[in-house]
């Protein structure tokens, strides 16, 4: 079943076509990686899917709703209810503790629930550091808090723009494990990355070049990988 459909999307900045007639289709529960050289329009596309920007031309159907035509207030609601965002920079509210940063997301969504927020931090292995301020956490730990914050409201779709770009090997693996788990739970994942290893973890990779879809690569090993991941996680 289709969750997201980009139909003839273009994003034009003056002379520059950051996105040029892009067509993409993502099914519910799919794990898609997006690759491409710098400036190829990956972030531009993620902003459009994430309801933070609108295309110049084309339709964006999210759950059958054309978000290209919604008001910015409605877009905020859609973002809040359906989407979890993870960025390359670990954006946190620097005067709030880790658990409070997670709770902020709950607060704007529905009701802050400290216990649930602590559980989410437990999932990313940071239960012990819940009451630390961002300045007291390492980069990898901050990014894990951001992952916890993105998944706290059980979004249908998680959008991650280079989530592992600033992480070391160990933290990258922790994040990938989490993605595997989320995928197993049925969450749809779209992950922008430069890192072939991260792309290889996904079911399908879409490659952008000059604002166009250059090619798509299906990961034939995905089923096997996923089993291995989950077995390792349980073990």
């Amino acid at each position: 079943m289709s969750l997201l459909e980009l139909k003839n999307i273009s994003k034009i900045y003056g002379e520059l076509k950051a996105l040029d007639n892009v067509n993409i289709h993502v099914d519910q529960g799919e794990w898609v990686a997006i690759m491409g050289p710098s400036g190829s329009g990956k972030s531009t596309m993620m902003n459009i899917i994430g309801c933070m920007d609108k295309p110049t031309l084309g339709e964006v159907l999210l759950d059958g709703v054309d978000i290209a035509k919604e008001s910015s207030k409605k877009l905020t609601d859609i973002r809040r209810d359906k989407i979890g965002l993870i960025f390359q920079q670990f954006h946190m509210v620097n005067y709030l503790t880790a658990v409070e940063n997670v709770m902020v997301s709950q607060y704007y969504h529905s009701m802050p629930d400290e216990k649930e927020a602590l559980d989410a931090l437990g999932r990313v292995g940071l239960r012990e550091r819940a009451h630390h301020l961002p300045s007291q956490l390492s980069g990898g730990e901050q990014q894990r808090v951001c992952v916890a914050r993105a998944l706290i409201n059980h979004p249908e779709l998680i959008l991650a723009d280079e989530p592992t770009g600033n992480l070391d090997e160990a933290n990258e693996n922790i994040v990938l494990d989490l993605f595997a788990q989320l995928h197993a739970e049925g969450t749809t994942l779209i992950v922008v990355t430069h890192d072939p290893e991260v792309a290889d973890a996904a079911q399908r990779t879409i490659v952008l070049e000059h604002g166009k879809v250059a090619r798509e690569v299906i990961n034939e090993n995905f089923e096997a990988q996923q089993k291995e991941w989950l077995a390792r996680l349980k073990g």
Binding site: R79, R80, H109, R149
Partner: peptide
Amino acid sequence: SQEIGLLKAIGAHDRA
């Protein structure tokens, strides 16, 4: 500004 942008991205309305 990053913090405010973040809150908006998380789903906070302008009024909030």
